[in-house]
Design a binder for these strands. Structure first.
Lengths: 182, 182
DNA sequence: GTCTATAACCCGATAGAC
DNA sequence: GTCTATCGGGTTATAGAC
Protein backbone atom coordinates (compact mmCIF):
# COMPACT_ATOMS: atom_id res chain seq x y z
CA UNK A 1 0.00 0.00 0.00
CA UNK A 2 2.75 2.39 0.97
CA UNK A 3 4.79 1.66 -2.14
CA UNK A 4 1.89 1.85 -4.57
CA UNK A 5 0.93 5.19 -3.05
CA UNK A 6 4.43 6.59 -3.31
CA UNK A 7 5.66 5.19 -6.62
CA UNK A 8 2.56 3.96 -8.37
CA UNK A 9 1.81 0.41 -9.38
CA UNK A 10 3.92 0.04 -12.50
CA UNK A 11 7.02 1.61 -11.01
CA UNK A 12 6.87 -0.57 -7.93
CA UNK A 13 8.73 -3.82 -8.60
CA UNK A 14 8.05 -7.05 -6.81
CA UNK A 15 11.60 -6.73 -5.47
CA UNK A 16 10.60 -3.40 -3.90
CA UNK A 17 7.66 -5.06 -2.18
CA UNK A 18 9.80 -7.93 -0.91
CA UNK A 19 12.36 -5.54 0.54
CA UNK A 20 9.77 -3.27 2.16
CA UNK A 21 8.03 -6.29 3.68
CA UNK A 22 11.25 -8.00 4.71
CA UNK A 23 10.16 -11.16 2.96
CA UNK A 24 11.39 -13.33 0.11
CA UNK A 25 9.82 -14.08 -3.21
CA UNK A 26 8.61 -17.51 -2.21
CA UNK A 27 6.46 -16.11 0.57
CA UNK A 28 4.77 -13.54 -1.62
CA UNK A 29 4.00 -15.97 -4.41
CA UNK A 30 2.75 -18.47 -1.88
CA UNK A 31 0.10 -15.97 -0.81
CA UNK A 32 -0.61 -14.22 -4.12
CA UNK A 33 -0.82 -15.59 -7.66
CA UNK A 34 0.96 -12.49 -8.94
CA UNK A 35 1.71 -8.82 -8.52
CA UNK A 36 -1.69 -7.64 -9.69
CA UNK A 37 -3.39 -9.65 -6.95
CA UNK A 38 -1.37 -7.68 -4.43
CA UNK A 39 -2.85 -4.53 -5.93
CA UNK A 40 -6.35 -5.97 -5.71
CA UNK A 41 -5.76 -6.68 -2.03
CA UNK A 42 -4.46 -3.17 -1.46
CA UNK A 43 -7.51 -1.68 -3.15
CA UNK A 44 -9.79 -3.85 -1.04
CA UNK A 45 -7.95 -2.61 2.04
CA UNK A 46 -8.51 0.99 1.00
CA UNK A 47 -12.20 0.30 0.59
CA UNK A 48 -12.45 -1.40 3.97
CA UNK A 49 -10.50 1.44 5.53
CA UNK A 50 -12.57 4.33 4.23
CA UNK A 51 -14.71 4.53 7.34
CA UNK A 52 -12.18 3.71 10.10
CA UNK A 53 -8.99 5.09 8.53
CA UNK A 54 -10.23 8.06 6.53
CA UNK A 55 -13.64 9.34 7.58
CA UNK A 56 -13.43 8.70 11.32
CA UNK A 57 -10.18 10.62 11.87
CA UNK A 58 -11.27 13.40 9.53
CA UNK A 59 -14.59 13.84 11.30
CA UNK A 60 -13.37 13.60 14.86
CA UNK A 61 -14.95 16.53 16.67
CA UNK A 62 -16.80 17.67 13.56
CA UNK A 63 -20.52 17.07 13.65
CA UNK A 64 -21.82 19.65 11.22
CA UNK A 65 -22.45 17.76 7.96
CA UNK A 66 -21.31 20.56 5.66
CA UNK A 67 -18.16 21.05 7.70
CA UNK A 68 -17.53 17.32 7.47
CA UNK A 69 -17.22 17.63 3.72
CA UNK A 70 -14.49 20.21 4.08
CA UNK A 71 -12.90 18.42 7.00
CA UNK A 72 -12.40 15.43 4.71
CA UNK A 73 -10.89 17.62 2.02
CA UNK A 74 -8.55 19.01 4.66
CA UNK A 75 -7.19 15.47 5.12
CA UNK A 76 -6.06 15.44 1.53
CA UNK A 77 -4.57 18.88 1.97
CA UNK A 78 -2.59 17.58 4.92
CA UNK A 79 -1.35 14.64 2.88
CA UNK A 80 -0.13 17.02 0.19
CA UNK A 81 1.38 19.37 2.73
CA UNK A 82 3.26 16.74 4.69
CA UNK A 83 4.79 15.26 1.52
CA UNK A 84 5.72 18.53 -0.19
CA UNK A 85 2.87 17.96 -2.62
CA UNK A 86 4.24 14.66 -3.87
CA UNK A 87 1.14 12.63 -3.26
CA UNK A 88 -2.47 13.13 -2.56
CA UNK A 89 -4.99 10.45 -3.39
CA UNK A 90 -3.59 6.99 -4.11
CA UNK A 91 -6.82 5.81 -5.73
CA UNK A 92 -6.79 8.67 -8.20
CA UNK A 93 -3.15 8.06 -9.06
CA UNK A 94 -3.75 4.42 -9.83
CA UNK A 95 -6.94 5.26 -11.69
CA UNK A 96 -5.06 7.43 -14.18
CA UNK A 97 -2.12 5.04 -14.32
CA UNK A 98 -4.42 2.26 -15.47
CA UNK A 99 -4.57 2.12 -19.24
CA UNK A 100 -5.49 -1.46 -20.01
CA UNK A 101 -9.07 -2.62 -19.39
CA UNK A 102 -8.10 -4.64 -16.28
CA UNK A 103 -11.71 -5.14 -15.14
CA UNK A 104 -10.94 -6.44 -11.62
CA UNK A 105 -8.71 -3.45 -10.87
CA UNK A 106 -11.10 -0.93 -12.33
CA UNK A 107 -14.03 -2.40 -10.45
CA UNK A 108 -12.22 -1.85 -7.16
CA UNK A 109 -11.18 1.68 -8.06
CA UNK A 110 -14.81 2.42 -8.91
CA UNK A 111 -15.95 0.88 -5.62
CA UNK A 112 -13.57 3.16 -3.72
CA UNK A 113 -14.83 6.24 -5.54
CA UNK A 114 -18.42 5.16 -5.02
CA UNK A 115 -17.95 4.68 -1.29
CA UNK A 116 -16.33 8.10 -1.02
CA UNK A 117 -19.17 9.74 -2.95
CA UNK A 118 -21.75 7.85 -0.88
CA UNK A 119 -20.29 9.21 2.35
CA UNK A 120 -20.22 12.79 1.10
CA UNK A 121 -23.67 12.49 -0.40
CA UNK A 122 -24.90 11.51 3.05
CA UNK A 123 -23.36 14.69 4.47
CA UNK A 124 -25.30 16.78 1.99
CA UNK A 125 -28.43 14.78 2.77
CA UNK A 126 -27.86 15.41 6.47
CA UNK A 127 -27.59 19.11 5.74
CA UNK A 128 -31.33 18.91 5.13
CA UNK A 129 -33.06 22.20 4.46
CA UNK A 130 -29.90 24.24 4.73
CA UNK A 131 -29.69 23.45 1.04
CA UNK A 132 -32.52 24.24 -1.37
CA UNK A 133 -35.04 21.38 -1.40
CA UNK A 134 -34.43 20.43 -5.02
CA UNK A 135 -30.64 20.23 -4.59
CA UNK A 136 -29.06 17.20 -6.27
CA UNK A 137 -26.99 16.03 -3.34
CA UNK A 138 -25.39 13.16 -5.24
CA UNK A 139 -24.19 15.55 -7.91
CA UNK A 140 -22.71 17.81 -5.25
CA UNK A 141 -20.84 14.84 -3.80
CA UNK A 142 -19.44 13.85 -7.20
CA UNK A 143 -18.42 17.47 -7.65
CA UNK A 144 -16.60 17.40 -4.32
CA UNK A 145 -14.65 14.36 -5.47
CA UNK A 146 -13.73 15.82 -8.86
CA UNK A 147 -12.66 19.01 -7.12
CA UNK A 148 -10.43 17.11 -4.72
CA UNK A 149 -8.88 14.91 -7.41
CA UNK A 150 -8.37 17.78 -9.80
CA UNK A 151 -6.90 19.92 -7.06
CA UNK A 152 -4.51 17.16 -6.03
CA UNK A 153 -3.41 16.71 -9.62
CA UNK A 154 -2.58 20.38 -10.10
CA UNK A 155 -0.95 20.78 -6.72
CA UNK A 156 1.22 17.74 -7.30
CA UNK A 157 2.28 19.07 -10.67
CA UNK A 158 3.03 22.58 -9.44
CA UNK A 159 4.43 21.34 -6.14
CA UNK A 160 2.43 23.93 -4.28
CA UNK A 161 -0.84 23.89 -2.35
CA UNK A 162 -2.30 26.86 -4.19
CA UNK A 163 -4.38 25.06 -6.77
CA UNK A 164 -5.83 22.65 -4.26
CA UNK A 165 -6.81 25.53 -2.01
CA UNK A 166 -8.29 27.48 -4.87
CA UNK A 167 -10.37 24.53 -6.05
CA UNK A 168 -11.67 23.72 -2.57
CA UNK A 169 -12.30 27.43 -1.97
CA UNK A 170 -14.45 27.54 -5.09
CA UNK A 171 -16.35 24.46 -3.99
CA UNK A 172 -17.04 26.12 -0.67
CA UNK A 173 -18.15 29.28 -2.44
CA UNK A 174 -20.56 27.21 -4.48
CA UNK A 175 -22.04 25.45 -1.46
CA UNK A 176 -22.41 28.77 0.34
CA UNK A 177 -24.08 30.35 -2.66
CA UNK A 178 -26.55 27.49 -2.59
CA UNK A 179 -27.20 27.93 1.13
CA UNK A 180 -27.66 31.69 0.88
CA UNK A 181 -30.29 31.20 -1.77
CA UNK A 182 -32.44 28.89 0.29
CA UNK B 1 2.15 11.49 -28.73
CA UNK B 2 -0.49 8.97 -29.72
CA UNK B 3 1.13 6.15 -27.74
CA UNK B 4 1.76 8.19 -24.61
CA UNK B 5 -1.87 9.32 -24.68
CA UNK B 6 -3.20 5.79 -25.10
CA UNK B 7 -0.84 3.76 -22.92
CA UNK B 8 0.92 6.28 -20.75
CA UNK B 9 4.63 6.96 -20.68
CA UNK B 10 5.89 4.04 -18.60
CA UNK B 11 3.87 1.43 -20.42
CA UNK B 12 5.01 2.63 -23.82
CA UNK B 13 8.24 0.93 -24.78
CA UNK B 14 10.79 2.33 -27.16
CA UNK B 15 9.99 -0.68 -29.35
CA UNK B 16 6.36 0.49 -29.46
CA UNK B 17 7.47 3.91 -30.62
CA UNK B 18 9.75 2.46 -33.28
CA UNK B 19 6.99 0.26 -34.64
CA UNK B 20 4.38 3.06 -34.64
CA UNK B 21 6.81 5.39 -36.38
CA UNK B 22 8.05 2.76 -38.82
CA UNK B 23 11.61 3.51 -37.85
CA UNK B 24 14.55 1.67 -36.33
CA UNK B 25 16.32 2.23 -33.06
CA UNK B 26 19.31 3.93 -34.62
CA UNK B 27 17.16 6.70 -36.06
CA UNK B 28 15.41 7.46 -32.80
CA UNK B 29 18.59 7.55 -30.78
CA UNK B 30 20.23 9.68 -33.43
CA UNK B 31 17.57 12.34 -32.83
CA UNK B 32 16.95 11.89 -29.11
CA UNK B 33 19.35 11.14 -26.24
CA UNK B 34 16.78 8.84 -24.69
CA UNK B 35 13.13 7.97 -24.20
CA UNK B 36 12.45 10.78 -21.76
CA UNK B 37 13.54 13.36 -24.30
CA UNK B 38 10.85 12.04 -26.62
CA UNK B 39 8.35 12.77 -23.86
CA UNK B 40 9.72 16.28 -23.43
CA UNK B 41 9.27 16.87 -27.14
CA UNK B 42 5.71 15.53 -26.99
CA UNK B 43 4.87 17.83 -24.09
CA UNK B 44 6.36 20.79 -25.96
CA UNK B 45 4.19 19.86 -28.92
CA UNK B 46 1.09 19.80 -26.74
CA UNK B 47 1.96 23.25 -25.45
CA UNK B 48 2.56 24.62 -28.92
CA UNK B 49 -0.68 23.00 -30.08
CA UNK B 50 -2.99 24.38 -27.41
CA UNK B 51 -4.08 27.33 -29.52
CA UNK B 52 -4.20 25.81 -33.01
CA UNK B 53 -5.11 22.20 -32.17
CA UNK B 54 -7.30 22.56 -29.09
CA UNK B 55 -8.76 26.04 -28.61
CA UNK B 56 -9.28 26.99 -32.25
CA UNK B 57 -11.37 23.92 -33.16
CA UNK B 58 -13.26 24.07 -29.87
CA UNK B 59 -14.15 27.71 -30.33
CA UNK B 60 -15.05 27.64 -33.99
CA UNK B 61 -18.35 29.47 -34.26
CA UNK B 62 -18.44 30.22 -30.54
CA UNK B 63 -17.82 33.83 -29.67
CA UNK B 64 -19.49 34.16 -26.28
CA UNK B 65 -16.66 33.93 -23.72
CA UNK B 66 -18.65 31.95 -21.15
CA UNK B 67 -19.81 29.53 -23.81
CA UNK B 68 -16.22 29.13 -24.94
CA UNK B 69 -15.38 27.69 -21.53
CA UNK B 70 -17.99 25.01 -21.91
CA UNK B 71 -17.22 24.49 -25.59
CA UNK B 72 -13.69 23.56 -24.56
CA UNK B 73 -14.98 21.16 -21.94
CA UNK B 74 -17.16 19.61 -24.62
CA UNK B 75 -14.00 18.71 -26.54
CA UNK B 76 -12.87 16.57 -23.64
CA UNK B 77 -16.30 15.03 -23.45
CA UNK B 78 -16.03 14.12 -27.13
CA UNK B 79 -12.63 12.55 -26.54
CA UNK B 80 -14.10 10.41 -23.78
CA UNK B 81 -17.16 9.56 -25.84
CA UNK B 82 -15.29 8.55 -28.97
CA UNK B 83 -12.95 6.25 -27.03
CA UNK B 84 -15.55 4.62 -24.79
CA UNK B 85 -14.18 6.63 -21.89
CA UNK B 86 -10.69 5.22 -22.16
CA UNK B 87 -8.89 8.49 -22.35
CA UNK B 88 -9.48 12.11 -21.73
CA UNK B 89 -6.62 14.47 -21.00
CA UNK B 90 -3.14 13.15 -21.82
CA UNK B 91 -1.44 15.85 -19.73
CA UNK B 92 -3.41 14.87 -16.64
CA UNK B 93 -2.65 11.19 -17.16
CA UNK B 94 1.07 11.81 -17.38
CA UNK B 95 0.92 14.23 -14.46
CA UNK B 96 -0.42 11.54 -12.13
CA UNK B 97 1.82 8.89 -13.63
CA UNK B 98 4.86 10.94 -12.72
CA UNK B 99 6.17 9.96 -9.31
CA UNK B 100 9.83 10.90 -9.41
CA UNK B 101 10.81 14.56 -9.21
CA UNK B 102 11.77 14.72 -12.92
CA UNK B 103 11.96 18.53 -13.01
CA UNK B 104 12.11 18.93 -16.81
CA UNK B 105 8.98 16.82 -17.27
CA UNK B 106 7.08 18.46 -14.46
CA UNK B 107 7.97 21.92 -15.71
CA UNK B 108 6.40 21.12 -19.06
CA UNK B 109 3.29 19.62 -17.52
CA UNK B 110 2.92 22.76 -15.42
CA UNK B 111 3.41 24.94 -18.49
CA UNK B 112 0.60 23.07 -20.26
CA UNK B 113 -1.73 23.49 -17.31
CA UNK B 114 -0.79 27.16 -17.01
CA UNK B 115 -1.49 27.84 -20.66
CA UNK B 116 -4.87 26.14 -20.36
CA UNK B 117 -5.77 28.15 -17.29
CA UNK B 118 -4.54 31.36 -18.92
CA UNK B 119 -6.85 30.83 -21.88
CA UNK B 120 -9.88 30.13 -19.71
CA UNK B 121 -9.06 32.98 -17.37
CA UNK B 122 -9.14 35.24 -20.41
CA UNK B 123 -12.65 33.97 -21.20
CA UNK B 124 -13.84 34.93 -17.75
CA UNK B 125 -12.09 38.29 -18.08
CA UNK B 126 -13.82 38.80 -21.41
CA UNK B 127 -17.13 38.05 -19.72
CA UNK B 128 -16.66 41.45 -18.09
CA UNK B 129 -19.55 42.66 -15.97
CA UNK B 130 -21.66 39.59 -16.58
CA UNK B 131 -19.77 38.33 -13.55
CA UNK B 132 -19.71 40.24 -10.26
CA UNK B 133 -16.92 42.84 -10.32
CA UNK B 134 -14.93 41.24 -7.51
CA UNK B 135 -14.97 37.77 -9.14
CA UNK B 136 -11.60 35.98 -9.01
CA UNK B 137 -11.45 34.97 -12.65
CA UNK B 138 -8.16 33.13 -12.30
CA UNK B 139 -9.65 30.99 -9.52
CA UNK B 140 -12.66 30.22 -11.70
CA UNK B 141 -10.32 29.10 -14.47
CA UNK B 142 -8.37 26.82 -12.12
CA UNK B 143 -11.69 25.45 -10.96
CA UNK B 144 -12.69 24.71 -14.54
CA UNK B 145 -9.49 22.73 -15.01
CA UNK B 146 -9.87 20.73 -11.80
CA UNK B 147 -13.47 20.01 -12.75
CA UNK B 148 -12.43 18.73 -16.16
CA UNK B 149 -9.55 16.62 -14.85
CA UNK B 150 -11.55 15.21 -11.99
CA UNK B 151 -14.47 14.48 -14.28
CA UNK B 152 -12.21 12.72 -16.77
CA UNK B 153 -10.71 10.62 -13.99
CA UNK B 154 -14.07 9.43 -12.72
CA UNK B 155 -15.54 8.85 -16.16
CA UNK B 156 -12.51 6.83 -17.23
CA UNK B 157 -12.76 4.72 -14.10
CA UNK B 158 -16.48 4.11 -14.39
CA UNK B 159 -16.35 3.88 -18.17
CA UNK B 160 -19.35 6.14 -18.44
CA UNK B 161 -19.83 9.82 -19.21
CA UNK B 162 -22.05 10.45 -16.22
CA UNK B 163 -19.50 11.79 -13.78
CA UNK B 164 -17.95 14.10 -16.34
CA UNK B 165 -21.37 15.48 -17.20
CA UNK B 166 -22.30 15.90 -13.57
CA UNK B 167 -19.09 17.74 -12.75
CA UNK B 168 -19.35 20.07 -15.72
CA UNK B 169 -23.03 20.60 -14.96
CA UNK B 170 -22.15 21.68 -11.45
CA UNK B 171 -19.50 24.05 -12.79
CA UNK B 172 -22.07 25.59 -15.07
CA UNK B 173 -24.52 25.89 -12.20
CA UNK B 174 -21.88 27.73 -10.22
CA UNK B 175 -21.08 30.15 -13.03
CA UNK B 176 -24.79 30.81 -13.55
CA UNK B 177 -25.34 31.37 -9.86
CA UNK B 178 -22.58 33.96 -10.02
CA UNK B 179 -24.14 35.64 -13.05
CA UNK B 180 -27.61 35.74 -11.56
CA UNK B 181 -26.28 37.51 -8.51
CA UNK B 182 -24.66 40.35 -10.41
C1' DG C 1 5.59 -21.62 4.76
C1' DT C 2 9.87 -19.65 3.73
C1' DC C 3 14.20 -19.87 1.65
C1' DT C 4 17.73 -19.35 -2.55
C1' DA C 5 18.61 -19.64 -7.18
C1' DT C 6 17.30 -19.02 -11.60
C1' DA C 7 14.41 -19.26 -15.72
C1' DA C 8 12.42 -16.59 -19.41
C1' DC C 9 11.62 -12.34 -20.95
C1' DC C 10 11.54 -7.35 -21.96
C1' DC C 11 13.64 -3.01 -21.24
C1' DG C 12 16.47 1.19 -22.74
C1' DA C 13 20.48 2.14 -24.93
C1' DT C 14 24.76 1.31 -27.85
C1' DA C 15 28.10 -0.29 -31.55
C1' DG C 16 29.46 -0.38 -35.90
C1' DA C 17 28.44 -1.44 -40.79
C1' DC C 18 26.65 0.90 -44.64
C1' DG D 1 21.05 9.23 -41.20
C1' DT D 2 19.42 4.70 -40.99
C1' DC D 3 20.24 0.00 -40.59
C1' DT D 4 20.98 -4.71 -37.74
C1' DA D 5 22.64 -6.97 -33.88
C1' DT D 6 23.42 -7.05 -29.29
C1' DC D 7 24.80 -5.66 -24.54
C1' DG D 8 23.79 -5.31 -19.73
C1' DG D 9 20.41 -5.04 -16.49
C1' DG D 10 15.85 -5.25 -14.42
C1' DT D 11 11.35 -7.51 -14.73
C1' DT D 12 7.77 -11.17 -13.05
C1' DA D 13 7.36 -15.58 -11.86
C1' DT D 14 8.92 -20.43 -10.85
C1' DA D 15 11.59 -24.64 -9.08
C1' DG D 16 13.09 -27.21 -5.64
C1' DA D 17 15.57 -27.53 -1.17
C1' DC D 18 14.57 -27.14 3.62
Amino acid sequence: MRLFARKGYGSTSVADILQEAGVNAGSLYYLYPGKQDVLLDVLDSYLAGIQPMLLAPAWEGVSDPIERVFALLRRYRSALESTDCTYGCPIGSIALELHEPDPPVRARLAANFDAWVDAIEQCFVDAGDRLPPNTDRRALAVFALTTMEGGVMLSRTHRRLDDFDVAVGMLRAHVELLMVRT
